[in-house]
Amino acid sequence: MSKVIRAVNVSKTFKVGAETVTAVDNISFEVERGEIFGIIGLSGAGKSTLVRTLNLLERPTSGQIFINDTDLTRAGIKDLRLARRKIGMIFQHFNLLMQRNIIDNVCFPMEIQKIKRRDALERAYKLLEVVGLSDKAKAYPSQLSGGQKQRVAIARALASNPEIILCDEATSALDPQTTRSVLDLLRKINEELGITIIVITHEMSVVRDICNRVLVLENGAVAENSTVDELFKHPRSQAAKDLLLIRNVDDKRRAI
């Protein structure tokens, strides 16, 4: 099976004043087509930076990113933009256009691709059905709840027929119940449309609920790369043990 994403020795450093901070430290991993792949770590572990290097929102300081065997770090700006259209992205704070109504938000990526307005609208309405928000087409983002906004963002990400969807802490701003429904939707998209999904999170429960495989990050480097089952049964790294411990505490709190 072909690897849809291949990160090879990716590093990213930032200059903060006179100091150089390494956010991503020589990370390599591969993602199979159709997987739901988790990247977990505590805040500051470099996971958001890492996911941003996958569509080159952050250009890696060194290393390569292959999407379907095309090296994005060597692509020109035009090719990069074309490649990005096949990589949808959803964010912690949804990042919807606040001055546009819902249907026009979903149409936005198709507008960028110069798809005819009529075709775009037709597709956008279908996508709103998929995410269960057909009745909100003419509403504005400010009128929706967090969970609804994230559904709109998912519909928007689907608009350009992506092969990959990157989720950057997509459920971190949502309550547990809404989180579950958003995760269910992501799983449905993965199963029915065969879209590969990368999930960035600091919550083990998210990994447990939808991921097949997981990369544990610590201080910008890979602490562990294994299947979810393996990680829960035999966590090898301290980082993984810590994250599992936090989850247990959370679960106990919820139980109380």
Partner: peptide, 13 residues
């Protein structure tokens, strides 16, 4: 909002 700009960039705008 920088996030919205980033979203547009991620769509290939």
């Amino acid at each position: 909002d920088k996030g919205v700009i980033e979203a547009a960039q991620s769509m290939g705008a």
